[in-house]
Simulated scan of single mutants.
Amino acid sequence: MTYHHTTSGHDEAGAGLDAIIGERRRLIALAYRLLGSLAEAEDAVQETYTRWYAMSRPQQDAIESHGAWLTTVATRVCLDLLGSARVRRERYVGEWIPEPLPERTDWISGRQGTAANDPADPADRVTLDESVSMAFLVVLESMTPAQRVALVLHDVFGYPFGEIAGITGRTPAACRELASAARRRVRASLPPETAPTAHQARLVRDFKRAWDAQDIDALMSLLAPGATFTADGGGVVAAALHPIEGREGIARYLTDLTGRASGGLAVLERTVNGRAGLVIEHEGVTVAVYAFDIADDRIARIWAVRNPDKLRPWSR
């Protein structure tokens, strides 16, 4: 793969170092979407920089585009991690849900890739905000690592299939087919959103009020008939091991959950992965983060992350 050089000269070494360090936010934004875990994304980017600094200065100078090199290495590190993650998640206790992100995570938006438009590519794109929603990340989990990489690099960050081929070691045609298969899976799993963001926030607020009031009927009225509730305790804390299906079962489970909780429990409205969500605190400590998927003016899916290892970004 060719990396195009944009700077030269010994006096530009400092600027070059700044540019290298400046890529970190974009790399984490990419790695988080690929891995679904902020902790693993940080590890992948750290490994990428470790490989960069392990090279001699002449080797670094020979690389014509530092950003392209870092992206290639980070993506390949993520591919390796995705392979091992599948093995680990087969042994995971209960359901595995991607790690939720708080509103203040400013790198969520990342930076658009440097790719030029490819006339052979489809016109539709996944926006950066959409690509960090919990619903989208959950669909990514159902894909093969290769499909996931092709879709994220192309549809989210705008890289042409020629560059993706160089990163993944596949042909452009193969990468195009991988992204197409991944896109079909997304469309089948995620119907287009119809409710404006403000309306989605109102639904979540109404859900919170009904939950606070222990009003089963009100909760059921906000849930779709075929709604699902999925919890992730990771075997560390108590959580439903299997998804709960149906609005009545979900409503009764949630009211029973808070009914059994000791004092000091607070349900707070927060932005979770760019969408309206809820944070559960017990005596000021975050013990759960709830993400929602809205469809046809009803709450269709709820993801409740309780594994404390995934709640580190939410600590005050």
Rank of each mutant, 00 (worst) to 15 (best):
G277I: 06
F136E: 15
E283Q: 14
D106E: 08
R104Y: 04
S65H: 02
L254P: 00
H10L: 15
G67S: 15
P243I: 11
S37E: 11
P191E: 08
G158Y: 02
H5V: 14
E64G: 05
D217I: 02
I302P: 03
P102W: 02
D61I: 01
M1L: 13
A85P: 02
D11P: 01
T48E: 01
S8C: 04
T168N: 00
A173D: 14
R89S: 05
L257A: 09
R176E: 12
A68G: 10
P145G: 13
I280R: 12
A41M: 10
Q60Y: 00
G264C: 06
L27E: 11
R89W: 11
T255G: 10
L223R: 04
A288Q: 15
A15M: 11
V287C: 13
I280F: 13
L219K: 05
H10M: 14
A165T: 08
Q112N: 09
R91W: 03
I294A: 12
G22I: 06
G94I: 05
G226N: 08
H242P: 00
S8R: 13
E47S: 14
W96H: 07
R185I: 02
A304G: 04
R184V: 07
L178F: 12
W107V: 07
F136W: 11
P102V: 10
T114E: 10
R187P: 01
L70V: 07
T2I: 15
V156I: 03
T286K: 07
M143T: 12
T127N: 12
I216T: 11
G263N: 05
I299D: 05
A210I: 02
L254W: 08
V279C: 07
S180A: 15
Q112E: 04
R25F: 06
W107E: 08
G36S: 13
T75I: 13
G83K: 14
D124S: 14
A213N: 08
A291V: 08
G169V: 09
Q59G: 00
D124H: 08
R104V: 09
R202K: 02
A239R: 04
Q200G: 00
R91F: 07
G22K: 13
T71E: 10
A41T: 12
T6I: 08
T71V: 12
R306N: 08
A146Q: 15
E130W: 10
V126G: 00
T194S: 02
A198H: 03
G67L: 06
S133C: 03
P145Y: 06
A201P: 02
L178S: 12
I97T: 12
A238Y: 05
P313W: 07
E193F: 01
L82H: 04
R316A: 14
H282Q: 15
L101C: 08
E12K: 15
A213C: 03
T197V: 04
F229I: 00
H199R: 04
M220T: 08
I97Q: 03
V289G: 14
R111E: 04
R260G: 00
D43R: 15
R209H: 07
A227Q: 01
G263W: 02
T271E: 09
I216C: 01
R270H: 09
R86T: 04
A231V: 05
G259A: 05
L190N: 02
Y3D: 12
C175Q: 11
A239P: 01
G259L: 06
